[in-house]
Design a protein around this nucleic acid. Structure first.
Lengths: 162, 162
DNA sequence: TTTGAAATACCCTTAAG
DNA sequence: CTTAAGGGTATTTCAAA
């Protein structure tokens, strides 16, 4: 297959107005039927399908997914944890990130340049869980130089891409 | 309609193992067919459908959406911008956040407690765009006390919720 | 590329156990 | 919660413009 979906260094995909509208529609409701989108855009369903498939195959759409409301599953508390790795342990950073992602409550991970090396976006039940997370997975790790935790009062995800 | 979907203060929804597996499946591919999920879980399609509808109606699933790869649409550069509001202008914060979200390139907004008041997750074409964003929308705003920008080398979104 | 039509596959509802 | 069957709709393919 000659797909370029996973080649992150390939040229960006050119998007016309229809593509952008499709992305906005799908960002709002990824389960909208092809027919309803085609109708709204006044194009043929087959054309619409070809467009959407192209967005998927070229990797513009990485995946169709769900936006989970953390509060509704008992994760009432969100935090950003800023992590610095010890200068002598920088080479362990990729290992570290692999360990962190996949841990319960970790919803996002940012790999930064600058004073902090990582930002962990955590969604857990209460402050006890935050403390436990930091103790178990950060403070206990000799590669970690320091951490700083900030509470997230509000999180507005998934802004418009196009 | 007696839905509790928008009542963020209502009790969390109890999730059993099947619900959790459904969430994981849908997080990975929100467009999976009901039948295929039912088959994998060895439950009846009608049961499966009822489960998924319940997740949606109770607000556990806020929306079905797409994960867009910013690099594929020419947004090769991501940054986190940490913003402090002047103490005397704290009352303008909600106005400020409304203005920021919806701006081109803003993909997430965190409303924080702690030393910084906001974190803006930006995805743009190049460093020029970052600079322009900060100048136009942050530095120019008298409510903004300071900003600090960090480049995002890598972003791992959408970790497992359950 | 886009289209329209045809064939296939799938979903949703209902009713009954 | 499950099974089973119906009617209805969506998806997909493909030849032609």
């Amino acid at each position: 297959m000659g797909s370029t979906a996973n080649d992150v260094r390939s040229e960006p995909v050119e998007l016309d107005e229809i593509d952008k509208k499709l992305l906005r529609m799908l960002a709002e409701n990824a389960r909208r039927t092809n027919n309803s989108m085609a109708a709204e855009l006044a194009i043929a369903p087959s054309t619409c399908l070809a467009r959407v498939n192209r967005l998927r195959e070229t990797g513009v759409i990485r995946r169709y997914t769900v936006d989970v409301n953390p509060e509704r599953i008992g994760r009432a508390l969100q935090a950003l944890i800023f992590v610095r790795i010890r200068p002598g342990a920088r080479h362990t950073m990729s290992t570290f990130s692999s360990e962190i992602r996949g841990l319960r409550g970790v919803t996002q991970l940012f790999f930064l340049g600058g004073t902090d090396d990582f930002v962990i976006h955590l969604a857990v039940r209460d402050s006890h869980d935050v403390r436990q997370f930091v103790l178990d997975h950060l403070s206990a790790n000799p590669a970690v130089a320091s951490t700083q935790t900030s509470l997230v009062f509000d999180h507005l995800p998934g802004g418009p891409w196009v």
